[in-house]
Design a protein around this nucleic acid. Structure first.
Lengths: 374, 374
DNA sequence: CTGAAAGCGCTTACAG
DNA sequence: CTGAAAGCGCTTACAG
């Protein structure tokens, strides 16, 4: 068999000696790929694995193995191949790789919304962790709709992703089945679960809801309202924590809950605080399920001349940007979203390497951040 | 030539009659792909174009053409192929498609940061516009670093993207060259430019800076400070608009500019307002280059008991979440970021179809939003 | 430890 | 308007 390199030189592929001398390696690569006028030629002019193999004087398979760091390749060959690849500016073709190996470098990250800074932080830290390893985070926005998530899952799974990151555990049976049968490593974000064989990184939303409520009780507040929007699963888990805590104290009253299915926002928080003050005049503390609501509530209180925490205490959740700058600064729960993004990506990385993680679930906890508003 | 389908039936590929009767279409697909024990078999069990073609009684090429909506295929065949694809739940393999066509469905979107809601909004609307057309937006975060952008460009361009979205025009010569020679359709976001052959969607940052300054002048403010952070190209274009406007009014004084290279944030805005009040006591209005700074400034003023706009007026830029809820509500410039995302994606879609857009540049303008703070 | 052959699932470039 | 052949650039599965 004869190989023809891009300079038109011909040599049998087993003639390695000439390459060992370094000749092909030092040959200057042409500034513009030489477009061969051959008919039937579809070459893109791109540097291919074969080019690298030729330059290193090995077979493409060996070059492939050396470049992927597969063990069982002679140290010397590895170095020669790597040098050649560097020299030629070789970049593996992800499409060819995906087709041959039945696995791409793509990692869909399915989050409910991008308008919540929480998920942007998670997405960014996932991206930052995965990218240096050659993996590509893909955006998937479910809008809190299990059917939309199922559709996204179908689409993305057809792309043979290397891994998958999904938010929480609340999804359709079909989605669960798709994930399970795909064989694609999957890590669940934001929540803890007892289910075996399932991987997750997050914290206990219910404990966090309980913790904040306990803090308010410890401050002496007795009539604590829970005000929530969106009403997604994690919000409702916080609600459960709130209920559990108040029941333990014998202070639970369902009429203290104000639940709005609307999307969470600063403006809505303002409206909801006004509603609480108007309809539940006895309330002495409000626990908002998210900081944007709480910030809106704080601003509304100021606008109305309602003293915080004198007349009513206000607490939030997530410690979003600006909460520490409010007047008074907002008491909230600091959630480890960047850490969740990073740890979940690390766990996925290890699953994608075929390893078995030491722990199925990683609980990153939360931090009660007490500031002036309570 | 004989084809063997997954049920082991053998029939010559030209025997279309039996398929026209609909037999293969109505054959139930096995719940689990039958893993053939053939050696040398690498099949993933996935439904392939060949399966569809067989079921429709046409060649794979015709099936491919029919599915991609390429014109020049008999209407009847198109319908048969589409029915077969639907029936079998066929999803084209993006990797195979990318490898064969030298073009993927990926569209990298290069933005400076994800921590600025501005770019999240752009990214989300790009994603929302592209996804239904089968294109996949990829995240690329440059951290305002041209070299990081160049590195991202190299990586992403090796993935043969279908299109490319980049922020602004400020990049390395090498990056410009990479984009130009890649042949990948590219649209520039956020800024306007006179350069021919370059596509962009945005608005004039300088005009917007000028507009806000003119508004402040029209309100009677004479000593207007410009306070900025990050100092990225677009911020500096706004600064230019501010300067031009004050020069026109004969009121420009470089000492009124407070420029910090730190990342923009609510907290920094608070610090910078304090600094302005301390070091430039004559200032009667502050134009912050971004709303997060302005919100921080507003909160700092409140904390210090400085009347807004009585003692000092405050204006921002971008109309971010919460600005309308501040006390007083913040005067700002509403920028069309979702519209920019959508319009740029539409322009890219038409470029990727090989069309020539009517206009090289789309100016989406901006809107002065005057509220209580000025 | 290394390699020749085959194959991944599509589309391009030719023919007819 | 339709199709047989070849090829995209890798990796898998076998051999040695």
């Amino acid at each position: 068999m004869q190989l023809v390199d891009r300079f038109g030189q011909r040599y049998p592929s087993h003639l390695r000696a000439s390459n060992i001398e370094g000749k092909p390696l030092s040959a200057p690569s042409p500034p513009v790929p030489l477009a061969k006028p051959d008919s039937k030629r579809r070459s893109s002019g791109r540097t291919t694995l074969t080019d690298v193999a030729k330059a290193a004087g090995v077979s493409p398979i060996t070059a492939s193995r050396a470049l992927r760091g597969e063990r069982g390749v002679a140290q010397e060959l590895v170095q020669r191949v790597k040098a050649a690849a560097e020299q030629l500016g070789y970049v593996p073709d992800p499409a060819a790789r995906a087709l041959a190996s039945q696995r791409s470098v793509q990692v869909p990250v399915l989050v409910p919304l991008l308008s919540n800074a929480l998920f942007v932080d998670v997405l960014e830290s996932v991206h930052r962790t995965l990218f240096p390893h050659g993996y590509q985070a893909l955006i998937g926005v479910t809008h809190y709709d299990p059917l939309e998530e199922e559709q996204l899952l179908r689409t993305y799974l057809a792309h043979r992703p290397a891994g998958l990151l999904v938010t929480g555990f609340d999804r359709t049976e079909a989605s669960r089945h798709l994930i399970a049968t795909s064989g694609v490593p999957c890590v669940h974000l934001m929540e803890m679960t007892p289910a075996p064989g399932v991987f997750c990184v997050g914290f206990s939303q219910q404990d966090a809801g309980h913790g904040m409520t306990a803090h308010l009780l410890s401050r002496g507040y007795k009539t604590i309202a829970f005000v929530a929007a969106q009403l997604d699963p994690r919000t409702m888990q916080r609600a459960e924590g709130y209920r559990r805590c108040l029941r333990e104290a014998g202070l639970y009253d369902p009429r203290l809950e104000l639940l709005s299915p609307q999307p969470s926002s600063i403006r809505l928080g303002a409206e909801l605080l006004e509603e609480v003050l108007r309809t539940r005049p006895g309330v002495d503390a409000v626990f908002f399920c998210n900081d944007d609501l709480a910030q809106g509530g704080l601003l509304a209180a100021q606008r109305l001349g309602v003293a915080v925490p004198g007349r009513v205490a206000i607490a939030g959740f997530n410690d979003l940007a600006g909460s520490d700058q409010m007047l008074p600064p907002l008491t909230t729960v600091r959630t480890p979203r960047s850490a969740i993004g990073e740890a979940s990506a690390q766990m996925l990385l290890s699953l994608m390497r075929g390893e078995v993680p030491v722990k199925n679930s990683v609980n990153l906890g939360f931090e009660l951040t007490v500031r002036g508003s309570t």
